[in-house]
Design a protein around this nucleic acid. Structure first.
Length: 419
RNA sequence: GUGGUCAUAGCUCAAUAGGUAGAGCACCAGGUUGUGAUCCUGGCGGUUGGGGGUUCAAGUCCCCUUGGCCACCCCA
């Protein structure tokens, strides 16, 4: 047993899985950069206050924060998500051109009880747009998430959308819900009664059976929309339809973070048996920048969980991890200097190359060459050194050839183009 | 945070009613005195997650602890 292991909910991403992670963020960047989004890299650590603005009724803030006092007596916290940081950055730097379209990727921290698809350090990729209220922007944001899943090859992801209305609509709805659920009294589960006191909306999220009858008969948000909210939401739906993006309106979708209002949405994996089927989600948070000390600014964005999305990819058999591919593996049985020279020559020519070490037997080095995934083994021994030649052996079929040492790069470049 | 369940070699798993810990894969070496992915032989590898207890004897029973997983909660 090793003396140390990763802390609960923390894990190492090792090759070849790590290569898949790198491609994951690359694919995401490609998709959103093509839509004019640029990367922002906020710090992992922020003043605690940045995150408490997310809402005092969410566990993310009240129970799961990695917060502490630093050596300068500052109350700080590891970020539990990145939307608040992006809004803080906006308020701090005041980008002159709106909308400000950014994307991000990186780890977040929440002190929860770990499960599959739920880690204490977990990665998200996401986008945020600040400064525009147009429902067509909502459509673009949702469409980019959709497009990204498609780029990964996921076919079974479903999209659910809802609108929480304008702040006034939302307030009236919350009051109606409070009245409704309070009428149920003791029949509601104790946990739901606690939730009710903090945020009646979230009672709709309960999965406990005794609560279901009251959730089923609860008031519907749609009945509380003012003209603006109804118009906005209708435009979003029309936009999604025009792009051919399938979705369902889920009136009970409320999202966990308190800052959401108006349009909200969630992407769900189609293959999950566990409760961790929320692959990602987002929505409008028009008051957040203001709450962080900036000007009143509309905002919308989403965050997608890397870990869960990759689990979905496993389930659907897409976007698999790929073994390392090399152009050449140098096998040297004359002592090492030749291998060093040849390997350097190959790399300088833009070919990827690895080599054997420790003067192992040719057989052992050939096994390494095989495992390295190299297209060719480049073999040099006593005889080749003597007559200035070198052997190139294709590892995936074909006969080996002995060629003049000076023709190595040309030979390999040619076989590579044939692949 | 609450409840449940599991924990044996690097990996996947065995081990009859408590009785000396095994296999496959992987890895290393040889069979093949310059050549891999197949095959054969051999080798390396475990204080059975950790600690304590019951017993002549514990991987197997009991307690504690750590960790994984599942449900709740919450959320990505």
């Amino acid at each position: 047993m090793p003396s140390f292991q990763t802390s609960p909910g923390m894990r190492d991403i090792l090759p070849p899985e790590s290569g898949r992670w790198r491609r994951f963020t690359a694919v995401f960047a490609d998709v959103v950069e093509a839509a004019g989004y640029q990367q922002v890299i906020p710090p992992l650590l922020e003043d605690l206050g940045v995150f408490t603005r997310i809402g005092d009724a969410t566990d993310v803030v009240t129970k799961e924060m990695y917060d502490f006092v630093d050596k300068g007596d500052r109350r700080v916290a590891l970020r539990p998500e990145q939307t608040a940081s992006v809004c803080r950055a906006f308020a701090q730097h005041r980008p002159p051109v709106l909308p400000w379209k950014v994307f991000y990727s990186g780890p977040n921290f929440r002190y929860e009880k770990p499960q599959r698809g739920r880690y204490r350090q977990f990665d998200q990729v996401g986008i945020e747009v600040l400064g525009v209220d147009d429902p067509m922007l909502d459509v673009e944001v949702i469409a980019l998430g959709w497009e990204f899943y498609r780029a990964l090859g996921l076919q079974q992801v479903t999209l659910i959308v809802n609108s929480l209305g304008e702040p006034g609509d939302r307030s009236r709805y919350v009051e109606a819900l409070r009245t409704h659920f309070e009428a149920a009294g003791e029949q509601l589960t104790e946990q739901s009664r606690v939730t009710l006191a903090k945020n009646p909306l979230r009672v709709l999220d309960s999965k406990r059976d005794p609560d279901q009858p009251f959730i089923a008969t609860a008031p519907q948000i749609a009945d509380f929309y003012g003209d603006d909210a109804a118009e906005h939401f209708a435009a979003v739906q029309a936009g999604l339809q025009s792009l051919g993006i399938p979705f369902t309106v889920e009136p009970k979708l409320v999202r966990g973070l308190d800052y959401y209002r108006s349009t909200i949405f969630e992407f769900q994996g189609g293959t999950f048996e566990s409760a961790q089927n929320g692959l990602g989600g987002g929505g409008r948070y028009d008051g957040l920048v203001e709450a962080l000390g900036g000007p009143a600014t509309p905002g919308i964005g989403f965050a997608l969980g890397v870990d869960r999305t990759l689990i979905a990819c496993d389930d659907e058999g897409c976007f698999a991890a790929e073994p390392l591919q090399l152009d050449a593996f140098v096998v040297d049985v004359v002592g090492g200097l030749e291998a060093a020279a040849i390997t350097a020559e190959l790399r300088a020519a833009g070919l990827s190359a690895d080599r054997g070490y420790d003067n192992r037997s040719m057989k052992a080095q050939m096994k390494l060459a095989n495992r390295s995934g190299a297209a060719c083994a480049v073999i040099i021994g006593e005889q080749e050194v003597a007559d200035g030649s070198i052997i190139v052996k294709p590892m995936r079929g074909g006969d080996q050839v002995t060629i003049p040492r000076s023709g190595l790069i040309a030979q390999l470049s040619e076989t590579r183009t044939h692949d």
